[in-house]
Design a protein around this nucleic acid. Sequence first.
DNA 1: AGAATCATGACCAAGTTGGTCAACATAGTG
DNA 2: CACTATGTTGACCAACTTGGTCATGATTCT
Lengths: 146, 146
Amino acid sequence: MKVSAKGDYACRALLDLALNYDSQTPVHITEIAERQGIPRKYLVQILILLKGAGLVKSKRGVEGGYMLSRPPVEITLGEVVRLVDGPILPLKCTMDDESATCDRKPICGFHPIWESVRDSISDIIDNLTYEDICKRTREKEQMYYI
Amino acid sequence: MKVSAKGDYACRALLDLALNYDSQTPVHITEIAERQGIPRKYLVQILILLKGAGLVKSKRGVEGGYMLSRPPVEITLGEVVRLVDGPILPLKCTMDDESATCDRKPICGFHPIWESVRDSISDIIDNLTYEDICKRTREKEQMYYI
DNA sequence: AGAATCATGACCAAGTTGGTCAACATAGTG
DNA sequence: CACTATGTTGACCAACTTGGTCATGATTCT
């Protein structure tokens, strides 16, 4: 698996929005950027990508900003990572893409190994929703401030 | 985790040598390259890297070539992948490197998540030796030829 | 109208990837 | 010794990716 800086930024930006989900008011980019330590101009691109995928929606104008378009419980970490950074474990051998299957597949001893690696990653990130992550974050914040 | 083409080549080249380990004779580059479908000139660099790490040893001259410097049971897949492609899950957040720890670590909800992903990958590849992989490969070859 | 904000596309420097090529060193053979 | 097959090394390179910046629009609210 690879999680690029961009992927990390996307995950954190979504967490920021998820923590704000209940208020039903948009958060604007500058706030997210400052709170999460993400370059503002770069964050713009990332949010546009997330919007294109239907994860967030935006509101223009003075009181504008971004908000989650689905409740946090319906967004998994795996969805976000795959959207931004592409397939988990991008090795020709393991791509399900019919065009790129490697011809050694039937005799390649590594094939089932890479698949099991990929599956064990998926198990974790596909079963983790932003609700879980919010909960963890709030717990951590509490511990930190007491 | 990321497994580049180079990493894949290294894994396969070592498998080729591991399958030949019992004969105690060196295999030369061209053979490995042809059997595994690796560009010959590129394979040279990879083998030099593996030699530098003490995984293989070489013999020059007419009957020269490469051979494993340790029995297959003492080489894990994790060792190879980390050597060629660097740390599993290279995200600042998860680097144990003391210089690069992210300052949000104590409150970052993602930190433990990435760590558990990394650990579950390590569990698989660090407990898999080239002896296991040889065995799997031989079984597959049998099935294929019958 | 004007201010605040999102939207879009062009651009860019630096690093990584996946190689190739030429020249040299060494070991075995006749 | 000379020759040849092989390993060794280092320079080089094109293409792509990463992680951004910048200028300019387009909306929306007041």
